[in-house]
Design a protein around this nucleic acid. Structure first.
Lengths: 223, 223
DNA sequence: AATAGTTTCATACAATTGTTTGAAACGCAA
DNA sequence: TTGCGTTTCAAACAATTGTATGAAACTATT
């Protein structure tokens, strides 16, 4: 076995292609061509295409979650067990944003693969995905420690919205660039992270905005 | 021609199936079975599978955008040409959220289809999608009228984040329900809309939150 | 060197896909 | 009714997919 060259060559090629083009567009023949191995190698080493995808997803999930938790713990340690809410959310969205945005050549296939996995819900991945909820619960718990007076429902919504802004920014970065004529700089990753975190934190910490909309006014007058 | 029964039966069946299961999982044979028509009917009436998808997307895009603009105009008229920022964003995210959330039997295949189209970027749709940017610009312009003192970059980010929260909520509604043990009520559509709008508006209207995070503190101390 | 186990390879297989074909059925004006 | 354009249908087609096979090549232990 030694280095298992073929196996790892397949993994690398598959991750690269899946990250770039999505699962449905990439065939086994594409992968083996990219990896310079024989077609039968995939079934020999992984059993099936689905098992290859599943192994890839599990491995990368663990890596991403570990990095998130590492940053979360660093933040909590720095705060003596209670992290600032901004830092908690930064630990949640920072790793994936850093991996998927910024100059093209610096993006990580790992992070892009994970985004693909969250978009195209292919059967082998769907079966595993429940694990992620346990992972998010840890962040929800940390948020509760940071904002003990907030309702749990609001905390879940804040967590959810933070992920929403991060993922959507990755998925639609091109559109935002076009829409803004390039004025929104998606390559300034730390600025993007700051915007996402700020948006989520504002929703969590601002009390009763009291901005009455026209709709509310109209609804009141209708009574 | 008269009613073109077969044609519309195909459109309805295709929209339903695509909305439910996504483009890559639905074959022409699935569609014709659901529509109770012959396999060759799709190619006869639409030319190809891609043209069927394209026609579906164009039609539905126009319908969704029209509804959004209708609500936007209603809000601007009510405010004498300048709508409240909340109402602008509500016009943007309301239609799609109302169509995709709420009790199962009330959801519209149209709205769900549009979400599918925004997730699985299949070639025939990708070619048309640029039109959507022009549509979003109208909302950006309305936002500028509502908040003339805000920077354009911030406005674009606010628009982007509003769509992010709306779309992500639709896509991950099941996960949020599980994560929160059912405490986040995704069936209360108007509450969801209010949360999304509030989150986006806060980001747009709150000035200098001045919440210093541990990361910033640490960075300062490191100097 | 001989052998046993592992890995690679070209090739074939069965299933599924979108599309095409040509005849049959239909609708309807003359 | 006749005739003609339109629509439907069963069947076949070509291409692509993941997977399986059996022989060849390789590796390493005896």
């Amino acid at each position: 076995m030694a280095t298992d060259q073929t196996r790892t060559a397949i993994l690398i090629a598959a991750e690269r292609l899946y990250a770039e083009r999505g699962f449905s567009d990439v065939t086994l023949r594409d992968i083996v061509a990219e990896a310079n191995v024989n077609l039968a190698a995939v079934n020999y080493h992984f059993g099936s295409k689905d098992e290859l995808i599943a192994e890839l997803f599990v491995t990368r999930s663990i890596a991403l979650n570990r990095e998130r938790l590492r940053e979360l713990r660093a933040a909590e340690d720095a705060g003596g067990g209670r992290a600032d809410i901004s830092d908690i959310l930064r630990a949640l969205v920072g790793p994936i944003l850093r991996g998927c945005l910024g100059p093209e050549n610096q993006r990580s296939a790992v992070a892009q693969f994970m985004i693909r996995a969250s978009i195209e819900s292919v059967p082998p991945i769907r079966r595993i995905k429940n694990k992620e909820i346990d992972h998010l619960r840890k962040f929800a718990a940390a948020m509760k420690r940071a904002l003990p007076e907030s309702s749990e429902v609001d905390l879940f919504w804040g967590l959810h919205f933070a992920l929403a802004m991060a993922h959507h920014t990755i998925r639609e970065s091109e559109r935002l660039t076009k829409l803004s004529d390039g004025r929104c700089d998606l390559d300034d990753v730390e600025d993007v992270i700051a915007r996402v975190v700020r948006g989520a934190v504002l929703g969590l910490t601002t009390r009763v905005p009291a901005a009455k909309s026209q709709a509310k006014v109209a609804a009141r007058e209708a009574r």
